[in-house]
């Protein structure tokens, strides 16, 4: 039973401390933070600015390292991996969707989606086939030959999602994916993410300020409340033990 539960865990943050130096001040972002996300979950991380939502996303994606604590993804501790191994791990396991999509302006939609496949053993023809499939999944097949500047904001974000899923990662990390979009387009993007979660089993962690966006998630974590509750529980545990 315990084994089954362990298998289901996709992301585990254990006793995470994260702080950085700002001038002469030490800024503590996370203090003994713990979080567990099961495989196939669609988690929305919400809360006011400055609570470290994006930092958590970066820690999960291996873009940042905790000051102390463990980051375990799919039973593998990643915070101890070397820079090179972390890059390879990221290429195989994580897909990123950013608020500003960060598509390369000189590449077509197809070219942008093919980019992560350069890190795989696929040949050129296979890369093209995979990219076309990803673009079809996000409804952008028709726009494959277009440059980002010829696409609308929503279309750009769809291409960014196609790029995130093209190498079939287990986890998709989205940082304010609808932050720059109008309501209708935002709903389309969120529906797309829900589809990827429900029908393709992707574990999705999404940082958002948008309350409507959180409605699409299977679990919403209000970070302010979550941190407060965690502290209370820790205090209670200390009192019981003493």
């Amino acid at each position: 039973m315990q084994n089954n539960n362990q298998k289901k865990v996709a992301i585990e943050l254990i006793n995470i401390n994260k702080s950085y130096q700002k001038g002469s001040n030490k800024v503590v972002v996370h203090d003994n933070f713990n979080l567990s996300i099961a495989k196939g979950e669609f988690v929305a991380l919400m809360g006011p600015s400055g609570l470290g939502k994006s930092t958590l996303l970066n820690l999960i994606g291996g873009l940042d390292l905790p000051t102390s604590g463990s980051v375990i993804i799919d039973n593998q501790r990643i915070d101890t991996l070397s820079e090179g191994k972390l890059s390879t791990w990221r290429a195989e396991n994580i897909g990123f969707v950013f608020q500003s999509h960060h598509l390369l302006p000189v590449l077509t939609a197809q070219g942008n989606v093919e980019l992560p496949l350069l890190l795989t053993a696929l040949n050129s023809k296979q890369r093209k086939q995979h990219a076309s499939l990803a673009l079809r999944l996000v409804g952008m097949e028709e726009r494959a030959k277009h440059l980002p500047k010829e696409l609308s904001g929503g279309q750009e974000q769809r291409v960014a999602i196609a790029r995130a899923i093209v190498s079939d990662p287990k986890i998709i990390l989205c940082d304010e994916p609808t932050g720059n979009l109008d309501r209708k387009t935002a709903d389309e993007i969120l529906t797309l993410l829900t589809t990827l979660n429900k029908y393709f089993g992707k574990t999705i962690v999404m940082v958002t300020h948008d309350l409507r966006a959180s409605e699409y998630a299977s679990r919403v974590i209000n970070l302010e409340k979550y941190i407060h509750d965690s502290k209370q529980n820790q205090l209670s545990a200390v009192e019981v033990n003493s």
Partner: peptide
């Protein structure tokens, strides 16, 4: 810088 950072996020190595 953003382009380079995106490459790194995607998984391209620093080298």
């Amino acid at each position: 810088s953003k382009e380079i950072a995106t490459h790194k996020a995607i998984g391209f190595s620093g080298v």
